[in-house]
Design a protein around this nucleic acid. Structure first.
Lengths: 187, 187, 187, 187
DNA sequence: AATGAATGAGCATTCATTCAT
DNA sequence: CATGAATGAATGCTCATTCAT
């Protein structure tokens, strides 16, 4: 019911993307959200709390989107293909979330523990990577490598398809998955 | 050539890496460099200028390192392999530069024009990508894709080998190049 | 008579003692008392009112304690001895009240008029001081001096006996009264 | 040479006395001192540092005043008489310092450690108290009691003589010392 | 070239109080 | 009686930059 709270969240997201998190003053967020500064701090103890809430809500969105379509019973190739496609579908339809995450990722707010917590939420991905490794499908049998390799490639591809929506076809998405897959798997 | 100027640059690099660029006050840089705040602004018109000078000197380092070993006459596979290996060699032996670049990349200081200028300096890389595309070696014939795909993957790998210096062997570096190459090329 | 009202008073007293009056936020009092902030302001028009109510209730306690044992008919020495001992007895058994008064005394809330009003309530003490002066018992025949001299000495002694409960015996209390009495009276 | 620094100190002292320490905003101090807020924080890292500097400079004044006249070789009675008279002379001629100390003493800024440090600076007083106790001159042979008893009485007397400058004669000061001395010493 | 005092707009956060429910 | 979201002026403090020496 808290309309003001939501207004603050929406405005903060927009301003963080436009100007960066550190460069966005809480006073500006409040002003553009049409509330008093005190109201912002009534709902969020600190600016950092506000950032974290946005960060978590984005992962809520992504994870719930993926879990709706993810098939635990499929084989490794299928599952990775699904994850890849769903990530890109979600990313290109939640552009502002992607921009926020890119602002956030290498930002000082993103403590190691926050990143760890985020990784933990993607257990179904991690399980798939582990399964792939244990089946000796991967060129490198280090979970950390496999995970980071996936994350950096999917980030790059999502950003690419956002920049080039004209190329964002199923066919092209499949092609990018092949690039990912052909690279990482054993011949 | 002034010693003070160099002290400022070194100290700034260290502090930017430790705390982030935006979170590092010029007053602190001056203090830790053992100079007056006025001296810092005597040598660098603005904080942004200081950041840019560091940024450019890093690419000077990387480019001169690569040009020393790069063989323009080799074939595409060879050239990309060279660039890949040289990037990782340079990255793992210039850890602080890598950390600085990661701090800088997604930072608001990095304007589009700064990024474009940087890309231009890597003409020998771009030429190689173009050559590969024109020879129809790549799964996707879009220069921007090929370039970004390379950049994100090399960044990911450099950071990985910095985190895991024990795994930073020629054999493993070659294996990661195979992951890159097998992914991006046509079958 | 409301329980909530009493919870507020008790919690406020505790927090004022722990952190000082000005440093204790009304929101914190409400929270620790388990009531809403609105409830606090329903029972006390302002924070200052709450402080005053505590202040007055403490003097209610002290004065009623003393009046129960005070003998108006005794001679000056006896009466001052009684007041002295009763003050120390009350103080060492109402430690939190003492702490509150010490927090309050030099605090900006304590206006001159509030202090005057408090002095007026201790008419039986003032009468005794006047009696002592008119009988030429005191080294200085200025009521203000006699009063302040008593107040500062009794405060000091109460605080001392609170810090050193092991020394708080009738014998020691009597000894401190002798210090007071031998000082102020004419030889 | 730092005129601005001194202006800040003088203005702060005045405003702290007038309105209390906590109720005086650093912005107001800067404004009334005719400097920018940044200047205040250039000279004093925090408001607390500013308060401490004032506090310490006051004790510098008192201690240097007393040491100029204090005779280490005199007997206990003489030495205490000197300290007493010098305290009152200093207090009535440095009224604003006294007011500041009264504002400060029971204020949350005055940590136990700050109070301890202050006590340590008055070693010549403490030595005299110890000497008096070891000669069995005092009714109570507890150094803490003797010290606090002195402090509270001298504070009370200084404030009294400030309020009543007409009564501040050598004769009256001597009389108040007799009140102090006759009280505390053994018969 | 080097210094460091001075600037003042800007920032995150606090808090007594109000008021609609 | 009770609630707690909402308010917004106020606060201590920061920081890139300037400038007189």
């Amino acid at each position: 019911m808290s309309t003001k709270r939501e207004q603050i969240l929406e405005t903060a997201m927009r301003l963080f993307i436009e100007n960066g998190i550190q460069s966005t003053a809480t006073a500006l967020i409040a002003k553009e959200a049409g509330v008093a500064t005190g109201t912002l701090f009534h709902h969020f103890k600190t600016k950092e709390d506000l950032v974290h809430e946005l960060y978590n809500s984005i992962f809520d969105s992504l994870i719930s989107y993926q879990k709706k379509h993810f098939d635990e019973e499929a084989d490794v190739y299928e599952k990775l293909h699904q994850i890849w496609s769903l990530d890109i579908e979600w990313g290109t339809t939640h552009v502002e979330y992607v921009h926020f995450l890119e602002r956030y990722s290498f930002f000082y707010y993103a403590s190691e523990s926050a990143i760890d917590k985020a990784h933990q939420r993607f257990d179904y991905c991690m399980n798939t990577f582990e399964q792939a490794i244990s089946k000796e499908l991967m060129k490198i049998d280090d979970l950390e490598y496999v995970r980071d390799h996936y994350i950096w490639n999917i980030r790059m591809n999502i950003i690419y398809f956002i920049k080039r929506p004209d190329r964002c076809t199923t066919e092209n998405i499949d092609k990018t998955f092949e690039i990912y897959w052909n690279g990482i798997i054993n011949d």
